[in-house]
Design a protein around this nucleic acid. Structure first.
Lengths: 198, 198
DNA sequence: TTTTCCTCATGATCTAGGTCATAAACCTAT
DNA sequence: ATAGGTTTATGACCTAGATCATGAGGAAAA
């Protein structure tokens, strides 16, 4: 996360989106750095069969859609607000200036990308396994340990719907529901009035 | 890719590995920046069932295993030479210095991570589809257009074995073989004495 | 020039997860 | 309170890809 004041100093503006507004489309030319102030944004794409795949969900303080600002490729997914959301928006060139003139911020930004890559690498090995349970555990553990940094002995409440878990792992809702129940029986997770804990 | 001379100036040393040597293990503590001089390295991990998953294959000029140098996590996969290979090895702290003192190199390095993320994002949406053909096309097209930058109208020879394609996409060899044949019939690829072109 | 090893190939099954259908539980706004 | 929408739940099938088994082709080495 980059300080709002610094972003503004370099020319960022605040933009507001209602729920379910599209911030940019897959294949659009990337021209801005985005950072969530409040609300939540998801990045998604649809496969040939029309099934949604969620690349990531970004809450307050997180930036999204930055990689294409550094490679010569377009957005690999669309960005959509899933709540009423406000974001900082900073033009690509100005963002580059910001990084070049603030080496520590740049280093910190590198950390953000590194963490994102770690998430992708982790999920990729799970996806490849074609094993529903492995995929779901990988997702939940990533959230618990790497996003929210909950200690092992503490219980973490997964604040995702079954559908979202499915869209993040490439599984169908029904499968997610069934596998979660199986996992509960095996004491790998707990379910208390429909909420998942691990 | 960072100039060898610059790496050496900051203290990098050249290290040599025979074929199939392990450079680092999954879960090791990351302490070095690695960049391939000659030969080839793969990063892999194994799922619960023992099936290999290849996170990436890195040839001359490419660096690997950098993200953990910037986050507080260990290697999510192992690195193994798949040929006789030489690499530059630079201590983490010295690599950080290099980036901080050379902003353009840092920016260029950010581009490397951005491209890697693009690959992961692309493959992730394919994996999630659970459709063998989609996964394979995604891999081949990524290599053709984003790694080797071959124009659409030119033919690209995939220099991977069926097994490697399987390990990169999470499919079994037999499936890869069958799907490639099907794709050939549909004129999506060509196969000339066992080599795949697209 | 034969042995060895790796890669490609193909057929016969099996199975995890997808698909379809239907409904209950919960939530929210009017 | 209650209607309408969303999320969770469950059962009955079906299908793509995994699994298992077996062999052929090619390349490198001995």
């Amino acid at each position: 996360m980059i300080e709002g004041s610094l972003l503004v100093k370099y020319g960022a503006v605040v933009k507001q989106y209602a729920k379910d507004e599209i911030i940019f489309f897959k294949n659009d030319l990337p021209r801005f750095y985005f950072q969530v102030i409040s609300g939540e944004v998801k990045m998604n794409s649809y496969n040939e069969a029309g099934k949604e795949f969620i690349q990531g969900i970004f809450s307050a303080g997180r930036s999204f859609g930055e990689p294409p600002l550094f490679g010569d490729f377009n957005y690999p997914a669309s960005a959509i607000s899933i709540d009423e959301t406000t974001v900082y928006v900073l033009r690509k060139e100005l963002f580059h200036n910001l990084l070049l003139e603030n080496p520590n911020i740049h280093l910190q930004f590198t950390e953000v990308l590194a963490n994102r890559l770690y998430y992708k690498a982790t999920m990729a090995s799970g996806h490849s396994s074609n094993n529903a349970e492995e995929r779901i555990i990988q997702l939940i553990d990533y959230l618990k340990f790497h996003v929210y940094k909950i200690p092992v002995n503490e219980l973490y409440e997964v604040e995702l719907t079954r559908q979202q878990i499915g869209d993040l792992t490439g599984l169908r809702v029904e499968t997610v529901i069934r596998v979660l129940k199986k996992m509960e029986k095996q004491n790998e997770i707990q379910i208390r009035n429909r909420k998942v804990y691990r």
